[in-house]
Design a protein around this nucleic acid. Sequence first.
DNA 1: GTCTATACTGTGATAGAC
DNA 2: GTCTATCACAGTATAGAC
Lengths: 205, 205
Amino acid sequence: MKTRERILHKSLELFNELGEPNVTTLLISDELEISPGNLYYHFKSKIDILTELFDWYENEMSALLEVPDEPMDIEDQWFFLHLVFESIARYQFLYKDVVNVLARHDKLRLRFQRIITKKQKATLQVLNNLHQQGRLQANPSEITALSENIVLTATFWISYANVAKSQVDEMTLVQGVYQVISQVVPFLEGEQREMLEQLKNAYFR
Amino acid sequence: MKTRERILHKSLELFNELGEPNVTTLLISDELEISPGNLYYHFKSKIDILTELFDWYENEMSALLEVPDEPMDIEDQWFFLHLVFESIARYQFLYKDVVNVLARHDKLRLRFQRIITKKQKATLQVLNNLHQQGRLQANPSEITALSENIVLTATFWISYANVAKSQVDEMTLVQGVYQVISQVVPFLEGEQREMLEQLKNAYFR
DNA sequence: GTCTATACTGTGATAGAC
DNA sequence: GTCTATCACAGTATAGAC
């Protein structure tokens, strides 16, 4: 792997572990056992590293959010959500310090907001699909509120786990998926409700 | 107002506005038109200021969370939640940079977690009360998931508004209350469900 | 491409006069 | 209590040799 690539991967790793504000360019080069000068040969600033990692994330998430306009049952949703949570986890540094990171980099702010908007649209699409099939019983304002709650939970679940439970592992992601789906379930018909219980038992421990 | 007090109030104001990591002791003293030396006469470090503000917050929130063990109807809950959101907003700097702030100050981490736990207990108490009265239809695991979702929403609503909508005003808080209650409503009986619609219309715009 | 050396800046914090 | 002056240090970034 070329040095440039190694810098990006190590930065992502350290950002996720320690939080972007707490990772210095010196630490990155130290960990890679290269000189700071070398790092600055490949990237003219720390923001450049951050921005390139954001590109990665943006591509990954954008692709994921191209939700097929077909009905999803609970199992499909579970799977889809798990992919979203995994993607968020891979770039959790963006989420754990969102407010701070975006406050310092206005361009990223707009791009992040665009992704949030995409998430809301994808969520609404899934919910409306279920509604039109008559499988989800809710009025429009309930659907709006529900989708906002879902996006919020997806956005901050990892931060919440980090603060409330002091750790983030694979189980944390599964639990996040469960928390999101449990918000949808009360609007579903009986059979689908039981499906969640089954999925929960299948995935938890 | 004594200088010591002025430092605390101005720090709180700046922390909330700019984020704690972006506020230097020099900025604080500048804004107060005192010298940095003077600031350090009153506080031996920046963490000391932060800690004292945390004391304020902790006292305020702890008092609030002493929920009376009596049933609350939707209106009571709305009012109670609004007080919680106002308190969070007053100390929003703690929330907007939670992960970062707590990563740097381990003692605050424990204290913050204790408050989160209190919030969960208070929420569970309210929900269980409703359940025992037969006004809330949900099984134990639904109640657990619901209370976790509620605490998460309350904790990160302001961050979410900040990121997704780029602003936090009085309306934001009202909307946060609405988002939380909308999670409870699907488990309630018909009359209570309509109550939320009324409250929503009364408070929005 | 990579290194060493170094400059520059901002920030937390202290010393000592008034 | 308040000020001025100053330190120490960390973090970003550059210059120039190899």
